[in-house]
């Protein structure tokens, strides 16, 4: 177990390091700098600006400096969007908004997706199963922005049921959270159905049936515990999906979260914010995947993690 954890932590650190390097090098590949799109400043001013932000040194030195500072929690300061404010502060200000919407969506996706899968497995072969399969297949085929914009047009504009912009009341959380949760919910539904069908054929379920336990109780109590494990492994990618899905949803609904800000910083080429946010989000996702992998082992002791069966 300890060996496994050590291996996974090392792997996670390597991934985070690689992403930092890739991000940094890619940002340096971009011709022109963050200053060029404004009214082109005189060469002297440009040189002074570059010296100030350390852009005049060779790339490897810049990279080393950046990593050393990042390790101390200093991701530099914003160059354009909120001039001279520390990137760390901006992230810490924006992230809670995204996290709030994200957690609601995540919990919702699991709480609705798993029962959908169980019901489909319970009624397998009937029209309920087919209907749910159609719904979930459609759900994993519709891009998030389509769900978000169609909801916005129908519920927000045509029928005027829900507020369309910002996060003012609890009502304004409904549409963003639903658009964010729809894809993972359907994915979890499919996952839960197939793993439930695997579990249902096992011996202990037959024993329970022979004992006379009602089918409903077998599905939702005995089988669910084991059928939930594949869903648990999906939680890592799910976190990533919800965070990145936030880019679209926050843009569509004008939510002042980190996702929308990241997209804006990309369009504005604000290097420090792009790098800081990428590294922050990537580390977050990698850490979540790591935690889920370890949890996986804790939940099901049969899984031999030392053999690298992390997924």
């Amino acid at each position: 177990m300890m060996k496994f954890i050590a291996k996974r932590v090392a792997q996670a650190l390597i991934v985070i390091f690689l992403i930092t390097c890739i991000t940094f090098l890619l940002m340096n590949l971009v011709p022109g700098g963050p200053f060029l799109s404004e009214k082109s400043p005189s060469p002297q001013v440009l040189a002074a600006l570059e010296a100030k932000y350390g852009l005049d040194k060779p790339v490897p030195v810049q990279l080393k400096n950046y990593i050393v500072h990042a390790l101390q929690g200093d991701f530099g300061v914003s160059m354009k969007m909120q001039k001279n404010r520390p990137v760390g502060t901006i992230i810490m200000e924006m992230f809670p908004v995204s996290a709030k919407v994200g957690i609601i969506a995540l919990v919702g996706a699991v709480l609705i997706g798993v029962p959908i899968g169980c019901i489909a497995a319970y009624y397998r072969g009937t029209w309920i199963d087919s209907a749910l399969r159609v719904l979930t297949t459609i759900g994993v085929s519709i891009p998030g922005f389509v769900v978000a914009t169609v909801l916005l047009i129908l519920l927000g504009s045509t029928w005027k049921l829900l507020p369309t912009v910002g996060l003012t009341s609890w009502k304004s959380y409904i549409m963003p959270c639903f658009s964010l949760a729809f894809y993972p919910m359907c994915y979890i539904g499919r996952l839960a159905r197939s793993s439930m069908l695997d579990v249902i054929n096992q011996e202990y379920i037959r024993t329970a049936k022979a004992k006379g336990v009602p089918t409903f109780k077998i599905v939702f109590k005995h089988a669910l515990r084991n059928a939930f494990i594949p869903v648990l492994t999906y939680l890592g990618p799910l976190t990533a999906g919800i965070l990145t899905g936030g880019f679209v949803v926050e843009t569509v609904f004008n939510i002042p979260g980190l996702g929308r800000y990241f997209v804006q910083s990309i369009l504005n080429r604000d290097y420090p914010i792009i790098m800081g946010t990428t590294i922050f989000l990537a580390s977050f996702i990698v850490t979540m995947t790591l935690v889920v992998d370890i949890l996986y082992k804790a939940v099901d002791p049969r899984i031999d993690l030392a053999k690298g069966g992390s997924r």
């Binding site: 996670a12 991934v15 992403i19 890739i22 890619l26 971009v30 011709p31 880019f247 990309i266 990537a282």
Partner: peptide
Amino acid sequence: ELIYSVPDILVVLLLSTALKP
């Protein structure tokens, strides 16, 4: 395995942003 655990959308977003110009 390493590539698998890279958050893909972030990197794709970054790549297309940086490579385009």
